[in-house]
Computed example of a mutant assay.
Amino acid sequence: MTSYRIPSPDTGGRTEPPGGTPNRARRSARRAAVPALATLLLVAAIGCGGGGEGDDRAGKVRTTESAEPAPEPSPVRPSATAPTPASPSPGTASPSPGPTNTTASPGPTGTGTPTGPSPSTAPPPPPPPPSPPPSPSPATPPTAAQLGRALLPTDGLPAGYIRTTLPSHPPNRAGRPDCVQRLNALELHRTTHPGAVESRAAWAQSRSGPFLQQVLRWYPGRAASAQVGTAARELSGCGTYTLSWPDGDTARQTVTPLGGAGIGDTSWHATITVRYAAATVEETMVLVAVRGCLIVLSHLGSPDAPSRAQTLGLARSAAGRLPSCRT
């Protein structure tokens, strides 16, 4: 980060004794210093129904047909010449034949219109349309305290890291102000995104580094993933440019994109190098989106950053602590 200055190893962080010219003392101390976290904290130009269906069964009308009962036929009388049936054999029971109907029973008379109710010929009504699904309720945003509990714990870091507060001294001029603004928005400034919530923490192994910072933000909707995509697109084209401070100090900053990190829903990382007259500061910055949350992890040292494998391992641990970062 270009906002932090590492104390010079020659002075051990001590200022000149009284009597020296203040401007001269400040300038010489700054040029002899190694501005370590200055890269990191300046580095930011940007924070985890269905509807019921209607009943589709059309109601069917049951129709019953009714008719007047046909009159009982008159029994046919046997003629005088009809043969007398043979007597049954003894011991054999023979049922007596009933009357024989020689003509069809007459149906009801009239003009052909049935006397009972006629079946309905109208088609069944269409099923009611399904009700629209209810709109999903927006997720309840977490509080800053809840995000704070999701930050990396100190006992989960490499040995020697302790919590600290990093000072902020961003440059006032840059050859690529758009790149500096994007880096500052990611690492240095508090988010101004509507509805976003943020928490952050920083650690150091000594006054001269290495330094570690984690920024954790919750965004509504899909804004967390969009932040990663926007930063990757803008920072990939930054290259090398100059930085200047009000006291006349200058440096050259280089952003080297490293592509996706394979962490969370989407991720991207880069190396950011700041070369001062007296020292070089190198940082690995990792961006990770996990559902509604954005992790910005900055790990830097002088003259080289800690190993990239260690930094990516910390980013994976940070992503694993966000199981309920809902959108």
Rank of each mutant, 00 (worst) to 15 (best):
R173T: 10
R275H: 07
R27Q: 13
T111D: 15
S137H: 07
P194E: 04
I295Y: 00
L183A: 12
A145R: 06
Q214D: 12
P9A: 12
S135D: 15
V288Q: 02
T63F: 02
D265Y: 07
L166V: 08
A82N: 08
T15C: 03
P75K: 11
R190T: 15
S89A: 15
G91P: 04
D56C: 03
T100Y: 06
S208K: 03
H269G: 00
S74A: 15
S206K: 07
C293E: 06
T327M: 08
G292P: 03
T327E: 11
G112V: 04
G52L: 09
R316A: 00
A29G: 14
G260H: 10
A319K: 00
A202S: 15
S298C: 03
A279D: 05
P117M: 09
T111W: 01
W268I: 05
P127T: 14
V286H: 00
S236T: 12
T81K: 07
T113C: 04
A204R: 13
H189V: 11
T327P: 09
C179I: 10
S137D: 07
R222W: 06
T191W: 04
C325Q: 05
P125F: 02
G237N: 05
A226T: 11
A29D: 05
F211G: 02
T2S: 11
V76S: 10
S267Q: 05
Y161R: 03
Q214T: 08
G49I: 09
A202M: 03
P17G: 08
T92A: 11
T109C: 01
P106M: 06
T266R: 09
P9I: 12
Q181G: 14
S208V: 13
I46T: 01
G59L: 13
G107M: 03
E65L: 11
G116P: 10
Y276I: 00
T271F: 01
G19A: 12
G156V: 10
P170F: 03
V274T: 13
G52E: 12
G54L: 11
S105C: 08
T256I: 09
G49S: 14
